[in-house]
């Protein structure tokens, strides 16, 4: 116990959080942290204090920048190369404008400084709201497109509909498979499957009978977030039946038969 207190009092934890230790030294501190909750508590407090200090140094809360960052992330899915030349020349112009604006501001703005701040706060919240609305419109558009596609599936006579009835573990469960043999797509309507427990997800199997051979065709991932509970999967198998089992997240190589929720044969 005195040992731990000595360790804490040595000041090594402060250096650890500042990033002033070598990699080896940091690793050693991390290992101590895993062993002693008293050290974790101490580290959290130091960290919180420094977090507050640097937050106080920030000229304002940069919430409004989040949207820009997300746009940049979305526009390049992989890594983002930093184009320094373009950035600096752009910054230059922005900066000149910025300086000019600052001078103007300084001349006339002392009295309206507070108002300016209020406006910026409003602007920030409006920008955030805009971003949210845009996202909602985009989601709605995606949903509409999906709905159109699904309507075509229901109308197409060449698509085979296979009802999957509930099995022992979940007699009330029900799902439907719509199998488009031309495009090798299956549409799983999983509206009547219970929400999977945390850490589990549904896995869809194509089955051929005699001998019974299951082939996984995919997972019903993000089940809870999916509003219409319709999942589109690829299936190039000569399926004679379809089954849905509950498996650990990420799926299994072979179906867990005790967790077979629904099953149906292709007529």
């Amino acid at each position: 116990m005195t040992n731990i207190q000595q360790y804490i009092d040595s000041g090594v934890l402060e250096l650890y959080i500042c990033g002033a230790l070598s990699e080896e030294e940091s690793k050693a501190v991390s290992a101590e942290l895993k062993k002693h909750p008293e050290i974790v508590k101490e580290v959290e407090e130091i960290e919180t204090a420094l977090e507050h200090l640097s937050t106080a140094v920030a000229p304002y809360n940069p919430d409004a920048l989040l949207q820009k960052i997300q746009e940049k992330i979305n526009s390049s899915t992989n890594t983002i190369p930093i184009d320094r030349d373009r950035r600096s020349s752009k910054t230059k112009i922005v900066l000149y404008i910025g300086w000019a604006a600052s001078i103007l501001l300084l001349i006339g703005l002392f009295s309206v400084l507070n108002k300016n701040r209020e406006l910026r706060d409003t602007l920030n919240s409006v920008q955030t709201k805009n971003a949210l609305v845009e996202q909602e419109i985009e989601n709605a558009r995606d949903d509409a497109e999906k709905a159109k596609e699904l309507l075509n599936v229901y109308r197409d006579r060449n698509i085979v509909k296979i009802p999957l009835g509930g099995q022992k573990v979940a007699p009330e469960a029900y799902a439907e498979v719509h199998w488009d043999k031309k495009s090798n797509k299956v549409y799983i309507d999983a509206k009547d499957l219970p929400t999977p427990p945390p850490g589990k997800e549904y896995q869809v199997w194509s089955l051929t009978l005699k001998p019974l051979t299951p082939t996984s065709i995919g997972l019903l991932s993000n089940f809870q977030e999916d509003d219409n509970k319709i999942f589109i999967l690829e299936n190039a198998n000569a399926s004679q039946a379809f089954g849905i089992t509950l498996e650990p997240k990420g799926g299994s190589k072979t179906p867990t038969m005790e967790q077979l929720y629904t099953l149906g044969t292709v007529s």
Binding site: E51, H52, L53, S54, T55, A56, V57, A58, P59, N61, P62, D63, L65, L66, T91, V94, L95, G98
Partner: peptide
């Protein structure tokens, strides 16, 4: 973000 912004600002001292 705000604490990170503070760190950055303390070094570059220029908002843009």
């Amino acid at each position: 973000s705000e604490s990170t912004f503070g760190i950055i600002y303390s070094i570059v001292n220029e908002r843009t």
